[in-house]
């Protein structure tokens, strides 16, 4: 199943290429500009790149979770692929798992590229790699869980894609794509703390400076992950 889904994805690379190229390219370009690597007093001694690297890493994750994951599964549902599969002894969990595994592995490869290439051109490595990976995994779980809820519940691929895009922009705003979290007014930052994207980006940022992500953020991510995956399984429908 996994092999078969991977083959299909490879033959239909459009969505994934778009989701992946932009942020990966952006992080490499930003990292290669010395001014952006330089610490800035307005950001509390951090450089723009250090602020944006976690945001861009999560940008890819959010795009993959909100667009690529629901896109494939809702289209399968719309076309009757899922209904056909239901007549076989195979469990739907296998298909969901195959899709999750694929999307997650693409996201991890992108994350690795976005960490390694900038480091090679002169930026910093994350100073707390264990915390960084922990934050990434929990964040991925929360985001993919939300993506799976979309993928489980919609019959129409276009509606799912629309809602996915909307969620994407909301989540990216709260993650600080347009207004970095240190610059947010405190009430907005508090809201952001309780969203999966905001807490994931903050955890990744903390870890890249050698701190441990805050317990609050990790708990927020884990709760989103648990709730979203349970909801996705409950909402799953074949047709």
């Amino acid at each position: 199943m996994l092999v078969s889904e991977a083959r299909l994805l490879a033959r239909n690379p459009g969505v994934v290429i778009w989701t992946v190229i932009l942020p990966v390219a952006a992080s490499i370009v930003l990292a290669s500009i010395p001014a952006i690597r330089a610490p800035s007093t307005s950001l509390g001694g951090l450089s723009y790149f250090q602020i944006y690297q976690p945001i861009l890493i999560f940008f890819t994750m959010t795009l993959l979770a909100m667009q690529a994951l629901p896109d494939v599964l809702t289209r399968y549902r719309e076309m009757g692929v899922l209904k056909r599969l239901r007549t076989t002894p195979v469990s739907p969990a296998l298909l969901l798992f195959a899709q999750l595994a694929l999307i997650l592995s693409i996201a991890i490869v992108c994350m690795a590229v976005m960490v390694v290439v900038p480091a090679l051109v002169g930026s910093d490595w994350p100073r707390n790699p264990v915390g960084f990976v922990l934050a990434y995994v929990l964040g991925a779980w929360a985001m993919l869980g939300i993506g799976l809820v979309l993928a489980s519940s919609f019959h129409n691929a276009k509606v799912a894609a629309g809602l996915g895009s909307f969620l994407f922009f909301v989540l990216q705003f709260l993650a600080g794509l347009w207004l970095p979290r240190p610059n947010m007014p405190s009430w907005l930052r508090h809201i952001s703390d309780f969203t999966p994207s905001g807490s994931a980006v903050q955890s990744l940022t903390d870890a890249s400076f050698g701190h441990w992500p805050s317990t609050l953020h990790l708990i927020v991510l884990a709760v989103w992950g648990v709730l979203a995956s349970r909801l996705a399984v409950r909402l799953f429908s074949w047709e």
Binding site: M1, S4, Y76, M79, G80, R84, T88, P89
Partner: peptide, 28 residues
Amino acid sequence: ALGIQLQESRLPDKMRVGEALELYASFY
């Protein structure tokens, strides 16, 4: 025990005939 051929059901567009049959064979 039961095989069903449905009136309206499709496969992913980019799946080859042989692959589809092998995939489904792997379920049983």
